[in-house]
Structures are given as C-alpha cells and as structure tokens.
C-alpha cells in the first residue's frame, strides 16, 4: 500500500468540504473565518502534493504565497471582526442582517 498523490488530494478535498460546511453552518464569525482558513490550508495541501507529484517546485512556492496572503487576510479580517464585535458579547453573524432586500 503506497501512498499516492490521490490520497493527499482526496484528503484535501475532504478538508475543503469541511471548511465550506463550517462557513455555512457556524454562526460565530470567528469560527466561520477559521473555516475559511481551513479551506486555504487544504488548497495548500493540494499545491504541495501536486508539486511533489510533478516535480514542480512552483507548487510549494504557491503554497508559501497563499500563506502570506492568508496571513494578511487574517490580520485585516480579525481587525474587522474586532471593530464590529468588540462592544458586543457575541460574534453572532446573524445579528448582522440590517442590509437586505
């Protein structure tokens, strides 16, 4: 039983789906955001696995960039969340539905 690239890719797909589910199902803004981070992680896993499979170092470089981007996103995202929720005692996104229609 050798581990093939498909194993990694399926695992990544599973993690990605779980991330997506998290965005849909959680009401806590922070956990939703974490789910997105999970999705990005699974993408990274895909990149690296394919990189290894094809012998292209590009994949790993891409994964590094994704991490940089994710880090930037996290900073700003958390800033937004803090700005909104710092004076409330919950991070329930359902409360944010004033703009609609």
């Amino acid at each position: 039983m050798t581990v093939t690239v498909t194993w990694y890719l399926v695992l990544a797909a599973a993690l990605f789906s779980m991330g997506a589910a998290g965005v849909l199902i959680r009401r806590n803004a922070l956990i939703m955001f974490m789910s997105i981070e999970l999705m990005l992680n699974s993408v990274n896993l895909t990149f690296v696995a394919v990189s290894k499979h094809l012998g292209l170092i590009e994949g790993q470089v891409a994964a590094l960039f994704v991490m940089v981007i994710a880090a930037a996103e996290v900073t700003v995202g958390l800033a937004i969340i803090v700005a909104i929720f710092r004076f409330r005692s919950s991070a329930n996104v359902d409360e944010l539905s004033e703009l609609r229609g």
Partner: peptide, 17 residues
C-alpha cells in the same frame, strides 16, 4: 427574490457554495 436576499451572511455563503 427579495426575500431570498435575507441579509444573512450565512445564507449568502450557502448560495455561493
């Protein structure tokens, strides 16, 4: 269709997904 535009971000995310 307006009702669909509920303002709920989770709902929007669901639609996107």
């Amino acid at each position: 269709a307006r009702a669909v535009q509920s303002g709920q971000v989770r709902w929007y995310a669901a639609v996107v997904a």
